[in-house]
Amino acid sequence: MDLMDLHDVAAIVRGAVEDAKVGVVPIGAGTHREVANPVADGCDEIRIPNGIVSYDPNDMTITAFAGTPIAELNRVLCGHRQEVSLDPRNDAATLGGVLACGLSGIRRLRLGPIRDTVLEVRLIDGRGTLVKGGGPVVKNVTGYDLPRLVVGSFGTLGVILQATLRCRPAPAQQQWFCSSETPSYLRRKLFRPSAVLWDGTSTSVLLEGYSDDIASESKSADLDGMLSSPPLFPNGANRGRISVDPRRLAALTQRLGGLDGVRFVAEFGVGTVHIAADEDLAFVAARAAAVAEGGWMLRECGGPPGFGGFGSNIANPALSERVRLAFDPLGKLSPGRMVDV
């Protein structure tokens, strides 16, 4: 397949932005479509092409169009025993969607948030201008940090066309374990585990690295049960993601454990809790529990009518609004997505 030239893509998106009556919303695989708030009615959908623009395994950087599915990135990187730390729940998701929604993966404890993976972005802002932020090398402080700002902006600062990511050597081995010990105990015992999860009844731990190291670590923390597959994420009609000060995570999980119909998996050491509930009432209660512990819950899908995407004020609203206007003065980019109605 011939890759489109970035400037041709830019021209198409620019045209779409300029012509839009209400606004534009980039659409990839649609896996994150319901996250946060729906865009305003009448927005034009734009699709960004997929394809890897360049991959230099010896430099461990990869550049791809925003429409590239993560599965495709993983396939290419796998051939060189490398990876990028994006880990979406569904790897049909596209690069642009994952970055725009900013949902970090399950290995955040060790790999950090996905915003730290992005080296350079190219986007079309609300004026239809092609803007580049960051730089294509693994370390860069030249100019303002647009890449981090754009990650998690839900498309309201620009339509991401292309991004350059930092790759890492893929771990030689990965192994999930289950344990009856508490997450806090395991975090103290283990040196940089990739994930320590707690679902209210048991702890699961992901260790990555060399097999002897995994063996000795698991032994030192009495991790007896190996899991043949990763633990399942809670699923249901209503799904959300709580973000809370990790010091209050234990208290929060206690609250959540007391709620009927709420299933959860908490990432210890991070402060993320994945929530699912079949009943609207339970879903609302889970958000209330998050707020009671000083956190908030992002809606991933579902929720009763009027259930806001954030359920909480945007932090620093005045400054955030000025930032948004700096990129999108006419409000054409995914309007409504970041504002709770």
Binding site: G102, L149, P246, L298, A315
Partner: peptide
């Protein structure tokens, strides 16, 4: 202290903050 004279918290101890990563923009500014 923002240039407007207000004191603001950018980012949070919680892993994600509702809204833009203003912390990310501020670091290195």
């Amino acid at each position: 202290v923002l240039p407007t004279g207000d004191i603001a918290e950018l980012g949070s101890l919680a892993p994600d903050t509702p809204g833009y990563d203003l912390r990310g923009a501020f670091v290195g500014s």
